[in-house]
């Protein structure tokens, strides 16, 4: 069985032209007939080749966009992993004021340190225990 190719039709035109050329009793009519078939096939092939080149370029562009998207995602993932890693391990913290010693040996408020090393932000409030301690006369509404 002949091997399948995506150019089966074009190959059959070529095969027929070769067979005609090999014919010892080649008449002018036969040559003209075969030549017309070859020209028609060549024109179609040329047009198709132009289309395939154009479409190949479009698909290349799509592939490039995919690559860029993957690169961007990879970079943001690496950045996120970097931040997670910064929060791993043992953090030196002041036993009294709870400040954290950073990479430059400076002591930072815990909120400042964590915000700088993660995606977390802080919103301040007062817990019930501290409310009682700081504002003993404050009676929360029920």
């Amino acid at each position: 069985m002949p091997k399948e190719t995506i150019f089966n039709k074009e190959n059959s035109v070529l095969k027929s032209a070769k067979e005609t050329l090999a014919n010892e009793n080649l008449s002018p009519e036969l040559i003209k007939d075969e030549l017309e078939k070859v020209v028609k096939a060549f024109e179609k092939l040329l047009k198709e080749n132009e289309k395939l080149t154009k479409l190949g370029d479009i698909m290349d562009r799509k592939l490039f966009a995919y690559k860029e998207e993957i690169e961007t995602k990879k970079n943001s993932l690496e950045e996120a992993i970097g931040k997670i890693r910064q929060l791993e391990g043992i953090l030196p913290i002041c036993a009294s004021c709870k400040k954290i010693r950073n990479e430059e040996n400076n002591w930072q408020q815990m909120e400042v340190y964590i915000s700088a090393h993660s995606e977390a932000d802080f919103s301040h409030g007062i817990c019930p225990d501290c409310t009682t301690r700081l504002y003993p006369n404050f009676k929360p509404k029920k």
Binding site: I6, E48, K51, L55, G56, M59
Partner: peptide, 13 residues
């Protein structure tokens, strides 16, 4: 989603 050049030729066929 994506077609390589050979596949585009097959779609044309």
């Amino acid at each position: 989603d994506y077609l390589n050049t050979s596949s585009v030729k097959c779609v044309l066929n």
